[in-house]
Amino acid sequence: MQKNTNPKANLPQQQVALPYKKSIEIAVKSIKSRFFRSLITTMSLILAISFYSYIKTNSLIITGIFFSENKTAIQQLSHLGYEIPDNGEAYTATPKERWILVLSLLVCVVGIVNTQLMAVADRFREIGTMKCLGALDRFILRLFLIEATLQGFIGATIGSVAGTVIALLGSLFKFGTVAMIFISINDVIMSITTAIFLGCFLSIIGVLYPALLAAKMQPVEAMRGKD
């Protein structure tokens, strides 16, 4: 049998591609069609981020009240156990609150990893099919990352707005309008923005391992087993 000098000679130098626009389109479609599953994935994120925003906004409100020098409100605060920060520093959450916050974010990531692993298992066949149609590992990875970012963005937006609103309304109830007057809108917006970034970040962290598993899967492995 005659040997080719270059065994790949008749392979054109073309490559498969998945433009970002298309990736986003597919990711959005996938989230929409699996709305319920996406909701479950984002639920723990919504809760954790709303807790984060609640704590953040509360700190802003309390700082505002301290700066207001409104006697009754400040007295109310010390009754509730809040310590007046020295030399005009901003009030920050108590160690206990921070500890719970870290825990809740951790639980949230674990929850995301869990639901995403299930989502990947559900989508073995889809992933395998895409690979048979010419998808590279990184297309699959990218699709999962985009989905997670979108889910993170939506979940964190809902969560942070909810947490902020609850904190504001709660303080308005407890302290009256003094809680609102000295709080800076910029700080609130900043806190919401931070929360959204944090949410996207957590969502991406949570999907990383499941998405890598999905991307690395061989088409035959993916196609075998359940429908």
């Binding site: 790949k8 392979l11 073309q14 490559q15 498969v16 690979k131 010419g134 998808a135 590279l136 590992d137």
Partner: peptide, 10 residues
């Protein structure tokens, strides 16, 4: 991997 994906695709 790239050439294989190309083969599967085209």
């Amino acid at each position: 991997a790239y050439e294989l994906a190309w083969l599967r695709c085209r």
